[in-house]
Design a protein around this nucleic acid. Structure first.
Ligand SMILES: [Mn+2]
Ligand SMILES: [Mn+2]
Ligand SMILES: [Zn+2]
Ligand SMILES: [Zn+2]
Lengths: 138, 138
DNA sequence: TTATCATCTTGTATTAATTACAAAGTGGTA
DNA sequence: TACCACTTTGTAATTAATACAAGATGATAA
């Protein structure tokens, strides 16, 4: 059985071509795309694709814990099919979102508090190495 | 000299009644308000206040490092006049944003990497203690 | 096989946060 | 007092996200 068909079936999500394509796109593109990027890329292969379907599919994948939604950008949600805990860096010049492979060491402490924690996000914002080099070259 | 007048002058921001009121509001209200909250509260005292002015003022305060902008909510920016590094918890039920008094221990390591880091955000999302208790009582 | 029915996709309309812009107001300086 | 740069205000425009209804799809059961 196709890898993505199995993922959807295992999560009791009905298998549709649109959902398979979104899932495949996220798995193949780890560069933290936004909705517009996912939509415009998939629309090349399937011109009748609706942006509403992309939103609905991403909601569904999120509800089943198959993607995480990052709020590192102040203007839009971006999507990450890597579920394992890691941090992110946002370059405020070029907009790139880069993985930072660290994990919050306080989670155990926080979990002892009264709140129930479902998501952990570590965000750094600044200027990426590439943009720093470009600026220096000027 | 008034505390807030001094803050603005020290940062070369022209002193205006609107800016003083925004600054005072943020200093008095640590509950992480959004723009709408700041605007509607200040409009009670100054009915001619424009929301654009609130946006402009918050931008200016942010540029001068006098407030930090949290992107913990997927729908809106929220503002924190506490600049010292601390983490935040968002209750996805009631929307409350609560301070978590911990600091990222990896900043030194990250700073050794190639990116320039200007902002550090630690976000936890889930259900707050109060909402958990309410649910249990049902 | 065919009818039924819930679910999904699509396209459009709407909402809501934010930004753009221009006109009017304000205040310091020459 | 006149000038000028900056600020405030109100409105229009933009844009991400959501709401909604009509048509498509596909599994199930008669
Ligand atoms: Mn990632
Ligand atoms: Mn805070
Ligand atoms: Zn960059
Ligand atoms: Zn709560």
């Amino acid at each position: 059985m196709d890898k993505y068909v199995k993922i959807l079936k295992d999560n009791n999500i009905k298998v549709t071509p649109q959902r398979l394509e979104v899932l495949r796109y996220l798995d193949d593109n780890k560069a933290h795309p936004n909705v517009e990027k996912i939509y415009s890329e998939l629309k090349k292969k399937n011109p009748s694709l609706s942006k509403t379907t992309v939103y609905n599919t991403l909601d569904s994948l999120k509800e089943h814990g198959l993607v995480q939604v990052l709020t590192i950008s102040p203007t839009e949600s971006i999507f990450d099919s890597v579920i394992s805990p890691h941090h992110h860096f946002l370059c405020k010049i070029c907009g790139a979102v880069i993985d930072i492979e660290i994990e919050c060491p306080y989670i155990e402490d926080i979990l002892k508090g009264g709140h129930r924690i479902d998501e952990v996000h570590g965000y750094f914002k600044g200027t990426c190495e590439e943009c720093l080099n470009k600026k220096e070259a000027q």
